[in-house]
Nucleic acid binder design. Structure first.
Lengths: 215, 215
DNA sequence: TCCTTTCTGTTTTAAAGATAACATATTATA
DNA sequence: TATAATATGTTATCTTTAAAACAGAAAGGA
């Protein structure tokens, strides 16, 4: 039965399902049961069936799930067919790396612009996109409504840039800066990649191990 | 009362506390109550007190928490004083960006080595570290036990490289490749940065918004 | 110094999340 | 065609996580 309110945990598992299903398709698997899928993903069959049942009935009793169809459903739920537009703000090492190596179009997004304030970077063409001067950011966004901003600027200007893009129609911010943005616009969604949080978590587990062994 | 088993959720919040406490210190705040901290972080005071009480009694009734002291405790819990060693494997755009811009030492880690198989990259010195040929990876790790491997190689070789480093004493893998590693070594901790999972999650929320408005 | 206020650490209660159980439908097989 | 096996979607139960309530200790003021 379709649910109205989908829990965060379920949403976070959707991309994992997508990856696994892609993987299965690449290996020529065209049907799978929740039991087998659970075994391969380290989840219980119950959880898998419950997760999918939040969005509809994608399986068939006595048969299982058709991989291609399920993959399509998950991809649709994630909005991958919508072709959301993306602009990178801050073309330093990281922003550059994302433009070059992250396959935005593979994931259903369209990289449409990039901005930086360094004159040495402005004008460069990366993946078909010309880096523009940050001074033009506001007006460009105003003229070209853009769904998602990749925020890869130094943390010192992160907050003000975030506010600027939020005030100029951005609907989501993919935040790579190491701060909590705290915008005054609840309609703008912020998704964080906190590198240091992740590494420190890893460090915690090593420290825990060390403590258990020595003290 | 100190707890034996700390839940994952609590652990994931620790780095957030650390960032907030750093922030408070930078602003000259030297004491804070769970109420005020909760307000600033979007958490309930209860949760904050419970989180800290997992590790000990860091506050003072009627007074609150001394920011510097609490920061020190959190940092200690995360093992930041232990100076875990780090080697980057895969010095492409992303690996390079991390070496240059992520402040490993600021977070208490020591960047000690880097490896790549591209001859144009091998020999380069980045942040004081000379990039070595990947052919030397196994033997080097064997001779220089390293705590954490930053895995920034192409996904095609990710699994085999991960296995290699795990078999040569790595204790943790910071995985930036878009796959689930599934090592046969439960003692090696894997911490993932799944860029696409994160962006797709953001996409989900935009799609949800769109669906609510139109259909 | 005494009393009120503040605020912690812990206990209790409630909510959320995950697992297990179940009823039912399809597939495969004899 | 009948029957056993399989596997879903849903309901019920259990576990985990978060919030609220509370008792007691320190701080601050009159």
């Amino acid at each position: 039965m379709k649910k109205d309110r989908i829990s965060n945990n379920v949403i976070r598992r959707l991309p994992m399902y997508l990856r696994k299903l892609d993987d299965l398709m690449a290996h020529g698997v065209d049907r799978i049961s929740s039991g087998e899928l659970g075994k391969q993903m380290g989840l219980t069959p119950s959880q898998i069936r419950q997760d999918f049942s939040c969005f509809g009935e994608f399986g068939q009793q006595g048969y299982g799930y058709r991989v291609a169809e399920l993959r399509e459903q998950v991809s649709r739920i994630l909005g991958m067919h919508r072709g959301y537009t993306i602009a990178v703000v801050g073309v330093g090492n990281l922003g550059h790396a994302l433009m070059e190596n992250f396959g935005f179009s593979d994931q259903g997004f369209r990289l449409v612009a990039a901005f930086d304030l360094n004159p040495e970077v402005v004008g460069k063409v990366i993946q078909g996109v010309t880096v523009q001067d940050s001074a033009k950011l506001s007006s460009w966004l105003h003229d070209n409504p853009t769904d998602i901003i990749v925020l890869t600027v130094p943390r010192s200007i992160a907050r003000s840039v975030a506010q600027t893009v939020a005030d100029n129609g951005a609907r989501g911010i993919w935040n790579f800066t190491n701060i909590e943005l705290e915008l005054d616009r609840p309609d703008v969604r912020v998704e964080n990649i906190h590198f240091s949080d992740s590494l420190l978590t890893l460090g915690y587990f090593l420290a825990e191990q060390d403590a258990a062994e020595n003290g």
